[in-house]
Design a protein around this nucleic acid. Sequence first.
DNA 1: TACGGATCATTGAAAAAGTCAACGATTGTT
DNA 2: AACAATCGTTGACTTTTTCAATGATCCGTA
Lengths: 152, 152
Amino acid sequence: MGPQSTEVETPRLAGAKIGSDVGLLLAKLHATGSLLNNKALADYGLRERSFSVLTLACSGLEPTQRELADFLSLDPSQVVSLVDDLEHRGLVKRAQGKQDRRAKIIVSTTEGRRIHNKARAALEVCEQTQLAALSEDENAQLRALLKKALWG
Amino acid sequence: MGPQSTEVETPRLAGAKIGSDVGLLLAKLHATGSLLNNKALADYGLRERSFSVLTLACSGLEPTQRELADFLSLDPSQVVSLVDDLEHRGLVKRAQGKQDRRAKIIVSTTEGRRIHNKARAALEVCEQTQLAALSEDENAQLRALLKKALWG
DNA sequence: TACGGATCATTGAAAAAGTCAACGATTGTT
DNA sequence: AACAATCGTTGACTTTTTCAATGATCCGTA
């Protein structure tokens, strides 16, 4: 990731046609966001991805690792590492799949939920910082548009 | 990058609270978008990043490598590689900075502009595919919100 | 029921990308 | 003139990504 602080002023290059390229806008917002998020999550020994896994483990949806990989756009082997880490730290457990014994279901422990709550609060502040330029309505709009773009 | 095709149906996990997490939404849309974009750009020997550099080189803004690094959220050393590659292929040239002789200004060649036009057309199709679920208005809205979030 | 092909989690190795400190050249400041 | 700071570049190092192979299990079909 590039070394820039929270950029406030519009850079000279934003005027270029590419300044409206959705791919670039997503990449840039994602990059700056990740930086902030990971910094905030470091206090809890988490990163964006492990936080996502932990969140889904806490969701009650009982996701399998395959579902996590698909949903988070990760290679299955990356999920193994993430879950390994969370499991070693006692935040998450692997349970046997109910219909499918090949699958492993990831569920949170009590401690996992405790950490998750704290981390989530920290991330909310973070997100608010990142989208500070947007009003409450615009914030909701952005979320809705992203979701719609992803899955109709 | 995870191995998923153009996902059409809403996954089961999207219902979780994290399904509205801006960080995750950005990551996912960026991931699927990159996959499509890089696939489309491969025909021209480009990737998302080299395309971005080429675009800015074609913009007439005469960006320095430092500006490229900042704008694209890249490490300066990564910009060196990208420009090296484009330069070796004759799509771009390094020119001496006008006020600052340390800086190198990146400008496109005729061939660079030719390739860029073709690639840009391919990317537009790509982008339209990715945001197919959005109306024309929503598409513009998304762009505007992303820009506003980034630089007010 | 048994076979065959597919899918799941896991491992390990190889390739790619990211990070970082140091360098010469140049700039701006004191 | 001296000094600290910045630009592009290099090279080393770490992290991340990618991919093929494996054992266990599932599913469809003969």
